[in-house]
Amino acid sequence: MNAIPPEPLATAPAVRQSPMRLALRRFLRHRLAVAGLVIVVLFVLGAALAPLIATADPNATSWSAIRREPSATYFFGTDENGRDVFSRVIWGARASLAAGFLSVAVALFIGVPIGLLAGLAGGWVDALISRIADAMLSVPFLILAIALAAFLGPALENAMIAIAISASPVFVRLSRGMALEANATDWVEAARALGNPPWRLGLLHVLPNIIPPLLVQATLSIAEAIIAEASLSFLGLGQQPPAPSWGSMLNSAQRFLTQAPWLAIFPGLAIFLVVLAFNLVGDGLRDALDPRSEKR
């Protein structure tokens, strides 16, 4: 066999560049997204370390300190039962973040395999799955979550299940579309020509390639899920009293909007901040993971 001249090494960059590492570098250049990530991390830390950070028992009532204004003792004031609002906001982050992360994780777990199946199997399987997803998407997200939560009964776990189910059709549709797109590429045909069975094609070839858009959508869905949890709790369908949740705090605050606005301001601000932060992270991820910018 003729000796083939080895290709010069010079054409390849010196540092190994995985697609993920390149994306990370682009993400870190995105200042707002990094700010969003910092806020998310702070909230997560706050929720995880709630017992250490909270200045008081979030459920301890005090008849001597009812609806106190924010002060050095009560950073965010106290509520109508004399409970420390700061501590309740910190503990309430647990309900909100748990609802955000867990329900979206479950939604991914339900939606992605079903979507991949629809996209790769095609035919009547695809038609059936797509019609069901369309039917679910035709009902507004929050309305569907409220209906499911009401059906399951008022509890934080049930609210999370309801949110997970309502959020899953988005992932079905997204992963189906991406699977269809991937299916038309040469590299999927090549994988098939190599003798890959369908499950390997879906899990080892298509799935890794659709993770970027799924990650972006998941981040945005977490923001939606947090709003949904707050809304369900506001309606009494989520976190049950006396356990703290931003949504239920807003509910009890509405009666005192003029006398004690801090009851609404701080949990509202918490929801606003965390939702904004997740949206910023999602936008940053989208820019960082966009395949069109991959070559840069």
Binding site: P19, T185, D186, W187, E189, A190, A191, A193, L194, G195, H205, P208, N209, E294
Partner: peptide, 19 residues
């Protein structure tokens, strides 16, 4: 398929970008 293989025209499309 171990006994029959295909080489594609477009080398930019035929390799899985995440492998």
């Amino acid at each position: 398929r171990r006994d029959m293989q295909l080489i594609f025209q477009d080398p930019f499309g035929s390799l899985d970008p995440r492998m």
